[in-house]
Design a protein around this nucleic acid. Structure first.
Length: 479
RNA sequence: GGCGAGAUAGCCAAGUGGUAAGGCCGGGCUCUGCAAAAGCUCUAUCGCGGGUUCGAUUCCCGCUCUCGCCUCCA
């Protein structure tokens, strides 16, 4: 599999450095509120990445952290009147709910920052001994950026001219630092932190943000590992700082590959609460959409391109055209899958496990190859539909149908799409409606059109829709 | 101001130095008592101006516009 590497700015072949297991780290969420669909663009694409790698025959070891101690979690937990742990557990659970709904494979390890404070303290001590860090008078510890020669390589900082305070977020403790670019490894306890502080050789306080990832990467993946990933906004300063910490500490280069995901835009602009275009999975589900529909929308553009999530139609109404489109596309895929399943005479739909074992892409080879080629999800989707059009299910033998179904399922599993169940949900309708439907069918057979139409209207009034087929009919909830 | 990404049909979005995947929507057709569903099918010369080339949407230059980042946002 090939993937663009932020460090070298080129598409490079991936392979596990130990020849066996591809070990990678993804920066996880800060659990202080609901994750939004932009966060999930990153996590979903990382999931597609992992699935593609595994389905190509490579075993993986996936670590993704939870940031459960920082300014925001401490501030908001107190405002909420809950302990930091109660607060972050709550939002961590919500995050996991969303991940499950979106069909994300759970990471093999999901470390918590709070639980690795000793590891972080150890790393700080090491950095101080090696002359890369210094303590300030108030008991904070800072990383001395000037002490690390390679600083800025990832984000090409040497070619930049940083605009002072461009983010409007100059820390109030900056005067404690030797240089504006130095960053905190350990932050001294402040009154507003309340009971949220930990003991350290430099006094009470809490770890800085960047350090947790360095410490947990080292703990679970070692000094050097295969790939590190996160949203583009993390390139600088977060990942730059991680590299500085880890490499200065271990003396080894940190990751072989850097995988960054471009942001999601909503209606052409950045998502923000004040603009009112801030969406969460729960909100979209509440609006009647499925997680799979969101997942489809999120993979419909290349990960290196900004994706414009269209929430409002041309009249400015919040009708979510992007999700409506995804729904139609998903139904076509489900329909194809259902027909193929019937023709194949397989007892059950091939799943991720069976795809991992057989790895036969049949007519969907080009689609899977699109994923192997720098994770080109939109190209893969296009090739899936092209392949579907080229397949005439009626003319396939049972064996051919089974093979095509496995190929189709492999690519669908790589994308992690949870297709809507196909087939007639007749039995799910209330007995009343089923009875009316049977009566209508009888009337229709008798060519009693007026009764037939009247019964169809009654069924519609009950919220159900009749769809006639060649052999009979199906009942669907009215959309 | 610096760095970076990008401008492809009504919308979303791939791709290529030789006249542009796919999805949605819309149109047409088939099927059908009607309708729905389903299937088939139709719709672009690739932001603007130059240049290189036998030939550019694809390479180079300029312009316009959009978006992101610039110390704790995925």
């Amino acid at each position: 599999m090939k993937l663009f590497d932020t460090m070298t700015r080129e598409v490079r072949e991936l392979s596990p450095r130990d020849g066996k297991i591809f070990r990678f780290y993804c920066c996880g969420p800060t659990v202080y509120g609901p994750a939004h669909i932009g966060n999930f663009r990153t996590f979903v694409l990382q999931d597609v990445f992992r699935r593609t790698l595994e389905l190509s025959g490579v075993k993986t070891f996936h670590v993704r952290n939870l940031t459960d101690v920082d300014d925001k979690t401490i501030r908001d937990s107190q405002a909420d009147g809950r302990s930091l742990k109660e607060f972050t557990d709550f939002w961590g659970d919500r995050f996991h709910d969303d991940c499950a709904k979106l069909n994300l494979l759970p990471p093999h390890v999901e470390p918590s920052a709070v639980e690795h404070i000793p590891h972080q303290i150890e790393m700080i001590r090491d950095l101080m001994e090696k002359g890369h860090a210094y303590a300030s008078e108030d008991g904070s510890v800072y990383y001395k950026v000037a002490s690390f020669d390679h600083y800025g390589r990832l984000s090409r900082l040497d070619q930049r001219e940083l605009r002072e305070g461009a983010s409007g977020a100059i820390a109030d403790d900056e005067y404690e630092k030797d240089s504006a670019s130095d960053f905190a490894l350990w932050k001294a306890r402040r009154d507003e932190d309340g009971i949220n502080f930990w003991e350290s050789p430099w006094g009470q306080g809490r770890p800085g943000w960047h350090l947790e990832c360095s410490a947990m990467c080292r703990e679970y993946l070692g000094d050097t590992f295969d790939l590190h990933s996160g949203g583009v906004d993390l390139v600088f300063p977060h990942h730059e700082n991680e590299i500085a910490q880890s490499e200065a500490c271990t003396g080894h280069h940190m990751a072989d590959h850097w995988f960054h995901l471009t942001h999601l835009l909503v209606d052409g602009g950045k998502m923000s609460k004040s603009v009112g275009n801030f969406y969460t999975l729960s909100q979209l589900i509440g609006a009647g959409f499925s997680p799979a529909e969101l997942r489809y929308a999120l993979i419909s553009a290349n990960y290196r391109q900004p994706l414009n999530f269209v929430a409002k139609d041309t009249e400015g109404n919040e009708t979510f055209p992007a999700l409506l489109g995804a729904r139609q596309a998903l139904q076509r895929l489900a329909k194809f899958e259902g027909s193929l399943l019937v023709k194949s005479a397989l007892a059950k739909m091939p799943d991720y496990e069976s795809a991992l074992q057989l790895r036969d892409t049949a007519s969907f080879t080009a689609a899977f190859e699109a994923l192997l080629n720098d994770l080109n999800t939109p190209d893969a989707l296009g090739r899936i539909f092209t392949a579907i059009k080229s397949i005439s299910i009626e003319s396939l033998s049972v064996e051919e149908a089974a093979r095509e179904l496995r190929g189709f399922r492999l690519v669908i599993e790589a994308l992690g799409l949870d297709l809507p169940a196909s087939g007639g949900p007749v039995e799910e309708a209330p007995a009343e409606v089923v009875k009316l439907a049977a009566e209508r069918w009888a009337a229709k057979q008798a060519k009693n059109w007026s009764d037939s139409d009247r019964l169809r209207d009654e069924i519609a009034a009950a919220g159900w829709e009749i769809k006639d087929t060649k052999e009979g009919y199906t009942l669907c909830p009215k959309s």
